[in-house]
Each structure stands twice: as C-alpha cells, then as structure tokens.
Amino acid sequence: MTAADVTLSQACGQAEDTVLAVEGLSIGFGSSPVDLVDDVSFRVGRGRTLAIVGESGCGKSITSLALMGLLPSPPARIAHRSARFLGRDPLTLGQRAFADLRGDRMAMIFQEPMTSLNPVFTVGQQIIEGVLRHKDVGWNEARARAVAMLARVRIAGAERRLGAYPHELSGGMRQRVMIAMALVNQPDLLIADEPTTALDVTIQAQILSLIEELQATTGTAVLLITHDLGVVAETAHDVIVMYAGRVVESGPVEALFSDPQHPYTIGLMGAMPSMGRREGRLLSIPGAVPPPSRFPAGCRFATRCPFADDRCHAQKPPMVEAGPGHAVRCWKAPLEEYLPS
C-alpha cells in the first residue's frame, strides 16, 4: 500500500463521501448493566468496504441490526454520541421513517438466505414488492427492474426465475436473489452479515466477486460482517476487529494484516491455519469469551491475554494511534516496547 492510498482511505473516511458515520455506539439489554456493544465508532465511504471482524458474541451482528433499526428497543438500550447516514441520524428515526429508509437507501443481506426469504411468495413478488414500496413506478416498470437485477446477479433465465419459489433454488442462487433484492433500489449502504458463511468455497468466491463488481458500478458502501479473515483480506478496504463488544483494533486492511497490534488480532492470525506450508502448531488463544456478566472491568480480553497485568484487568485501555488511520485499544501496544526482551 502506498502513501497515496493511505491518504485516499482517510479522505474517503472523512470527506462528504462518507455514507455512514457512527460515534460511540453502545447497546445493552434489559436491566443488565453490561453493554454488549461498548463505544463503537466507524465510518464507511462511498464505494468502500468496511469489514467488522470478530467471533461469536463479539457484538458484530447486534451492531448491524441496530443500524438497520431492526433491534427492538426496549428491551435493547441503544445509546450513541452521534450518527450520520446521508445527513440524518438513523438511530433517532421513528419506525415509519426507518421503514422508508430500509430496503431503499440501506439494505441488508443475511447469512441464511432460506430463512430470510418468504417461502410462500415467488422470488419475483418479493423483489417487485421492494421496488413498489419505495419507488414511484408502476408494476410493469418494477417487474422490468427485477428482471434486470436478477440478470445482473447472473441468474440464468431471469424472466423465468421470477416465478420460482425460494425452495426451488440452490443455496448460492438464493443468496444471489437476496443480493438482487437488496440492491434493486441501488442503496447507498449495503450491510452484509456473514453473506457467504453458509456457502461452499467456489460459490463464496462467485458471490464475493459479484458484490465487489456491483459495488464498483453503483458506488454502494458495504459494511461486511464476518469472522473469516481470509474474506476480509480479499474484499475489505478498512477493518475493525471486535472482541466482547469493543473495538480492539481498526485500520486500513493492509496495515492491520502487516502490522497487527492488539494481542487478540495477533492471536486470531496465529490461530488461523495458513494456506502456505505448515509452520508448526497453530497458536491457540487459551480459554473462551467470557459471558457478559463476567466481562473484566478493564480490558475485556484480559482474561485470555498472555500479556495482561493488573492494570489491564482494572482499567479500560483507550484507543491509541498505531499508524495512519490505524488505532488499537491496548495498554501494551506496540508489544515489543513493553516486554523485556
């Protein structure tokens, strides 16, 4: 990555090209005092892909549901310092205003396309409904758009497939239909929550390149939620790594992979088997993510971190800069300087 690229990614993050910017998002549930998502901030620019990476329970999916206005509140308690989506704060919108936004300016695709498609309506009815709801067009025009969109996601015989029910399609096809449905109104933001996790690797490659291609032509910003670092490396421009509800590291994808700072990021990279020749045993991060009731008061990774000391357990570390656009939430970054060698 060149210096020019770095400035470009920063520019995209900040200029008027920002599609979505969130500051200090926190989400808790019911009467539990612990925030399952704690002080999360990020920006996505037009035509850019921001990946949120983390394992089960890190809060990545709740974050995306809150952004889509799909988290019922109560029981959810959603707090934030500021949020901007196309000049408005989406998190303060009422249900009705949000419904106008959803499926039009922002759209979402989920991991399991079978449960996200309605089994009793044809694919065509489901796509056309989205166009009619948001655009001032007649049925014929809406149908034409649906056909065109199905063809764009490379479904052969799009006209004919319009009449198909979800169960008649394979997993890869259903995910294509989901993408067509999400993108038919050319949204400014696409939230993709583990879009390829349920798919085989060759189908995954097709779907990822499809999203990338559509993004290049429409300029849609993509928020990609995933646990797969391989997918992140190949598709994202910027990354935030989450652990137990907090952002532990964020930055441009190249910086994150070449210079990972947080022990959790480092651990994840060492735990993932490399596609190269075997280099000894896999690194294993001891233990498991604690349940929210037992999150440590300080750094939430402290219970599993081999470098943790008393301060880590007691005090929440701040986000500090580690490079251009690259930040890390760790008392001991960079590690080399804090460790006796």
């Binding site: 797969d228 391989g230 490396a233 190949e234 994808v253 990279m269 596609m275």
Partner: peptide, 11 residues
C-alpha cells in the same frame, strides 16, 4: 484458487 488466503489486498 477460490479459497481466500488472508493476504491483504489479495484481489
């Protein structure tokens, strides 16, 4: 070839 390899910018 379809398998992602976790190399940043490996497009």
């Amino acid at each position: 070839a379809a398998n992602p390899r976790a190399v940043a910018g490996d497009r």
